Amino acid sequence: MSVSKFLSISEISEITSFTPHTLRYYEKMGILSKPERIHGKDRKYSEKEVRHLKGIKTLKEIGMSLDDIREFFLEGCILDKVQSGENFKPPLNKRIRILETHLGNLDQKKKDLEAMIRLTKAKLKEYETLLGTE
């Protein structure tokens, strides 16, 4: 998908499925940088923000917290650093650590869910056994 040079908040909302309210909230939280403004009023977004919002959407889909997402993108765009010749390894290593921590949390949640499933099945079997003894 190719986007025009600048997009309004309603256009970027339509492309990314984030509501204008959410976009403004992400700006306020520091997850999304404040975009340029046309005549000091209307926000104008570029393709860079579209890419950034797609990254945010992916992290939200894997269940990452907004605080972790903010930390994840704190150093800016890795691709920009690579293209400019800037050292991208420290922020990339930081992102790897954040993802590894998140994966560890997901693994723990999976274990917790598996334990709850076992307990529920045991309780269900207990009740089914009681029904069979009438």
Score class of each variant (00 low, 15 high):
I15W: 08
T129D: 10
N93L: 13
D107I: 13
N87A: 05
L106P: 07
P90D: 13
E14L: 04
D67Y: 06
G63A: 01
I31A: 02
L106D: 06
L113Q: 09
F18Y: 09
M29A: 07
S33Y: 12
K28S: 12
D42G: 10
I15M: 09
K5L: 12
M29K: 09
L113I: 08
I78T: 02
T120L: 07
S10W: 07
L79T: 01
G55M: 01
K60Y: 03
K94T: 09
I31W: 01
M116T: 08
E114W: 13
N93G: 10
G63K: 04
L23Y: 05
V82N: 00
G76D: 05
L7V: 04
S4W: 10
F72W: 11
L119E: 05
F18P: 07
G30N: 07
S17I: 00
D112M: 15
M64R: 00
F73M: 15
T129N: 09
P90H: 03
I78P: 02
Y26A: 04
G104R: 12
Y26C: 01
S84Y: 01
T120C: 00
F6M: 14
R118V: 08
T58W: 09
R95H: 04
I38K: 08
G63C: 06
T133A: 01
E49T: 00
E47H: 02
G55C: 03
K60N: 00
E11P: 07
I38Y: 15
E75F: 15
T133F: 00
E14R: 02
F88V: 06
K44S: 14
H21E: 00
S4K: 07
H102I: 05
G132S: 15
F72G: 12
S13I: 06
I56H: 06
V3C: 04
I98K: 05
K44F: 12
L23S: 08
F72V: 14
Q83R: 03
K5C: 10
L106W: 03
F18S: 09
T120Y: 02
E100G: 08
K54A: 14
V50M: 06
A115Q: 15
P35D: 03
D68Y: 05
K48F: 04
E128N: 03
T101L: 12
I62D: 09
Q83P: 02
I117G: 04
Y25Q: 08
V50E: 11
G40M: 12
A115L: 15
K28E: 10
K34Q: 09
K44W: 09
M29Q: 10
E27F: 05
G40Q: 13
K28M: 08
L59I: 01
I98C: 00
E61T: 12
I69Y: 04
R95Q: 01
D112Q: 15
L106C: 10
P35W: 07
A122H: 13
I62M: 13
Y25N: 01
I9K: 04
I12E: 10
H102M: 13
K121Y: 05
H39C: 12
K125F: 11
R43C: 05
G63Y: 00
Y45V: 14
R37T: 13
